Simulated assay, not measured.
Amino acid sequence: MPKRILQGTVTSNANAQTVSVLVERRFTHPVLKKTVRRSKKYRAHDENNACNVGDVVRIIECAPRSKTKRWEVLQAAEA
Rank of each mutant, 00 (worst) to 15 (best):
E47C: 04
E47M: 08
D46K: 08
K40A: 15
P64H: 05
A44D: 03
R43M: 09
R65I: 08
R43S: 06
P64G: 08
D55F: 06
N52F: 02
R58C: 04
V53K: 09
A44H: 00
E47N: 04
T68D: 05
K33D: 13
H45S: 09
H45M: 12
P64M: 01
Y42H: 14
Y42F: 15
V53M: 07
K40G: 11
R37C: 05
G54E: 01
V53Q: 06
R58Y: 05
I60N: 01
N49H: 11
R65K: 14
E47V: 10
S39T: 15
K33H: 14
K34V: 14
R58A: 05
V36M: 12
A44P: 00
V56H: 01
K41Y: 09
H45C: 00
Y42N: 10
A50I: 12
N52A: 12
R58L: 04
T35R: 10
A63Y: 14
R65G: 04
D55K: 01
K40F: 13
V56S: 01
N48G: 09
C51Q: 10
V53Y: 02
S66A: 12
C62Q: 11
E47K: 14
C62L: 03
E47W: 03
A44K: 01
K40W: 12
C62K: 08
R65T: 04
R37N: 12
R65S: 02
R58S: 05
H45P: 03
K40H: 15
E61N: 06
K40P: 09
N48C: 04
C62P: 00
R65F: 03
T68W: 00
A63H: 13
C51H: 01
A44C: 06
D46L: 06
S66I: 14
V53R: 07
V56K: 06
K34S: 12
Y42T: 08
C62R: 09
C51E: 02
E47I: 11
N49T: 11
T68G: 01
K67Q: 13
T35V: 15
V36Q: 13
R38P: 02
D55L: 06
K41R: 11
E47Y: 10
S39M: 14
I60W: 02
K67G: 13
R43I: 08
